[in-house]
Simulated assay, not measured.
Amino acid sequence: MRFSRIAQAAVAATIALSSLGAQAGIQVGGTRVIFDAKSDKRETTLAVRNKGDTPYVVQAFIDDGAGDTKNMPFTVTPPLVRLEGGKEQLLMIRRVEGKTQLPSDRESVFWVDVKEIPPTDRSLQKDASALKIAVLTRVKLFYRPAGLTGNAADAPAQLKWSAVPGQNGRGAALKVSNPTPYHVTFSTIEVDGAQKESINADMVEPQSDLLIPIPERAVSKVGPVKFSYTTINDYGAVTPATQVTASPSAARAASQ
């Protein structure tokens, strides 16, 4: 199945409500799941906890990042469970052998979706007139094949950076090359240009390149670019900032 526009709107509405003080009742025990085939031969776990007093139904499933849940190489057990107030449930994430062939020379990434469904029984609701919306939490699931070279913690230091022309040849962009078999997820990228600029970037995939546009108000033309970046490690912690000067590259940035 794919997420419908209605479901996406519900998630957006939930986020908006959260900014106004509404809080999710279910807490997911981590911002990422590492399925390391070297130690996790068949399964790994993710804890979910009901922080409040009201029971919730928790639905869990895997998707490919674009909302597609068909033919996923992982399953979640239990897929649906009632979680009482103050209780915790371990979700078992199992590899489905033979269903989908995954690369053996690099990590693959999926998403674990945890949806909390509030009670419909008015006797269980503290405020029966309040708007009830199912809250969807998504965390990355990294599948790490056994036998990968190197160490995931060392991957950020091995990134290769260069400064290239921006979109349509205007301004500049950062090109980051990841020669490792591990994903590197960025927390912050701070450019020290004409004015300091924070840039949003998600992650660079294994053995791949990523182009990160720089606002022209910070860097108006290609040249050495000074910046710092932090990443998120396996435990969800932010790593210390690394200072870099990216030198110009003759390669041109592709259209975004």
Results as ranks from 00 to 15, higher is better:
Met1Gly: 14
Met1Leu: 12
Met1Pro: 14
Ser4His: 10
Ile6Leu: 15
Ile6Lys: 15
Gln8Ile: 13
Gln8Glu: 12
Gln8Met: 13
Ala10Lys: 11
Ala13Phe: 13
Thr14Pro: 00
Ile15Trp: 07
Ala16Ile: 08
Ser18Asn: 14
Ser18His: 13
Ser19Pro: 00
Ala22Met: 08
Gly25Tyr: 01
Gly29Asp: 12
Val33Cys: 06
Ile34Ala: 06
Phe35Val: 05
Ala37Glu: 15
Ala37Thr: 02
Lys38Asn: 14
Lys41Leu: 12
Thr45Cys: 05
Lys51Ala: 14
Asp53Phe: 05
Thr54Asn: 00
Tyr56Ser: 05
Val57Asp: 05
Gln59Phe: 06
Gln59Asn: 11
Gln59His: 06
Gln59Val: 11
Ala66Gly: 10
Asp68Ala: 14
Pro73Gln: 06
Phe74Glu: 01
Thr75Tyr: 05
Val76Pro: 07
Val81Glu: 06
Arg82Gln: 12
Leu83Asp: 01
Leu83Trp: 08
Gly85Glu: 07
Gly85Phe: 05
Gly86Arg: 07
Glu88Phe: 01
Leu91His: 02
Leu91Thr: 07
Ile93Gln: 02
Arg94Val: 04
Arg94His: 10
Arg95Pro: 00
Val96Phe: 05
Lys99Tyr: 12
Thr100Phe: 02
Pro103Tyr: 03
Pro103Ala: 01
Asp105Met: 03
Asp105Val: 04
Glu107His: 03
Glu107Cys: 05
Val109Gln: 14
Phe110His: 04
Trp111Gln: 13
Ile117Ser: 06
Pro118Gly: 06
Pro119Gln: 06
Leu124Trp: 02
Ala130Phe: 08
Leu131Thr: 13
Lys132His: 10
Ile133Gly: 03
Ile133Tyr: 01
Val135Phe: 11
Thr137Pro: 01
Arg138Glu: 13
Arg138Lys: 15
Phe142Asn: 10
Tyr143Leu: 09
Pro145Asp: 07
Gly147Asp: 10
Gly147His: 11
Thr149Asp: 14
Asn151Ile: 05
Ala152His: 09
Asp154Gln: 15
Lys160Met: 11
Lys160Val: 13
Ala163Lys: 05
Val164Cys: 04
Val164Ala: 10
Pro165Gln: 10
Gly171His: 04
Ala172Gln: 09
Val176Cys: 09
Val176Trp: 02
Asn178Ser: 08
Pro181Asn: 04
Pro181Ile: 03
Thr185Ile: 14
Thr185Arg: 15
Phe186Trp: 08
Glu190Ile: 11
Ala194Thr: 15
Gln195Ala: 12
Ser198Lys: 11
Asn200Ala: 14
Asp202Leu: 13
Met203Gln: 13
Gln207Trp: 00
Ser208Leu: 01
Asp209Thr: 12
Leu210Gly: 09
Leu211Asp: 00
Leu211Thr: 12
Leu211Pro: 01
Ile212Lys: 03
Ile214Pro: 03
Ile214Asp: 02
Pro215Gly: 05
Ala218Arg: 00
Ala218His: 09
Ala218Pro: 03
Val219Tyr: 02
Val219Gln: 07
Ser220Asp: 14
Val222Ala: 07
Val222Leu: 10
Val222Asn: 04
Pro224Ala: 15
Pro224Val: 03
Lys226Leu: 01
Lys226Val: 04
Phe227Leu: 08
Phe227Glu: 02
Tyr229Ser: 07
Thr231Ile: 06
Gly236Gln: 08
Ala237Pro: 00
Gln243Tyr: 06
Ala246Met: 07
Ser247Phe: 00
Pro248Tyr: 04
Ala250Lys: 15
Arg252Met: 08
Ala254Phe: 11
